[in-house]
């Protein structure tokens, strides 16, 4: 059962990240996702500090606002202070992340948080906090939260698909037809913040970034249709979670680290395979 809980939980993180990450990859904004996943730390700390160790969904949604604030700060630096956007991202998220780390190292005991957990998560121990669901079966507390967010995100992507798609593909054209491009930007960033806030406790900040960028990038190499890319990215994320988990068990290493490594290896493999096939096809057709 423990195996199942861990793989299931990692898969939920994978799906959440794949849904958001696919849009980020196509918007060439993975760096912003990366920044948000670090910048939410002060928000997470405050959420846990206020509620003790029982990070509940409403409080975590509140914490997700720190991600939006980070996006606003980054935009302010870029637009008003005319800083290059990568510099603006670098400055703001390291600052927020550092504030978060200081808060945690100083007051972490009260909130039941430590730096280790923030970076690597504690998915190995997830089944220590089982909770009954509708009196039918038990799931780890983290998993229940991730599942709720997964449902919210799927609903959001289905509801907002056209808006997200057109503003990702051609924001200028979207603006010209009167679509509120800014709304869709913050809609997506809210989703990214929520995802990173609820994912970090189980898998840690590093795996969140790997999930946000890896599976969507792999799927992008393989398909020609954005809807298929979304679905395939989810599937690849789930596959990497399972492979990574068994690899970790076999080698007796960190689960989050192992899944990140598997994602990286799959990317390299697919990238090489796709390019080999392409050059072969070119040789044949030439």
């Amino acid at each position: 059962m423990n195996d199942f809980y861990i793989i299931f939980t990692a898969s939920l993180v994978a799906i959440n990240c794949a849904l958001m990450g696919s849009f980020l990859v196509m918007r060439k904004m993975v760096m912003l996702g990366d920044a948000i996943s670090h910048a939410v730390l002060p928000g997470i700390f405050i959420a846990y500090f206020l509620s003790g160790s029982t990070g509940s969904l409403p409080i975590l949604i509140g914490a997700a606002f720190s991600g939006i604030i980070a996006t606003l700060i980054i935009e302010w630096f870029t637009k008003r202070a005319r800083l290059q956007s990568d510099a603006a991202i670098g400055v703001s998220y390291t600052l927020l992340f550092a504030i978060g780390i200081i808060l945690i190292s100083k007051f972490g005991q009260n909130a039941d948080l430590d730096q280790q957990c923030v970076l690597y998560g504690e998915i190995e121990y997830i089944s220590l906090w089982l909770k009954p669901v509708f009196g039918l079966f038990e799931l780890p507390k983290q998993t229940i939260i991730l599942l709720s967010v997964c449902i919210i995100l799927i609903a959001a992507v289905v509801w907002g698909y056209k808006g997200l798609f057109i503003t990702t593909f051609d924001p200028n054209f979207a603006l010209s037809t009167g679509i509120a491009v800014g709304f869709w930007h913050y809609f997506l960033m809210s989703g990214v913040s929520l995802t990173t806030v609820v994912s970090f406790e189980s898998v840690g900040a590093i795996l969140v970034i790997a999930f946000l960028s890896g599976p969507p990038a792999i799927a992008y190499l393989l398909v020609e249709d954005f809807k298929k890319m979304l679905i395939l990215a989810c599937a690849i994320g789930i596959l990497c979670s399972a492979l990574g988990y068994y690899a970790a068990k076999w080698l007796d290493v960190s689960v989050a680290g192992s899944i990140s490594t598997v994602i990286g290896l799959v990317f390299v493999f697919v990238f090489v395979a796709v390019n080999l096939l392409k050059s072969k096809r070119d040789v044949i057709s030439a």
Binding site: G163, F165, F169, F173, I179, Y220, E224, D225, F226, K228
Partner: peptide, 23 residues
């Protein structure tokens, strides 16, 4: 725009209707 975007010709042209039909 990025012409490597995973979208079909039909996907792109149908964006011309989003305004009248709403999102």
């Amino acid at each position: 725009i990025d012409w490597d975007f995973p979208a079909s010709v039909w996907d792109v042209v149908s964006m011309g209707r989003f305004q009248k039909r709403g999102l």
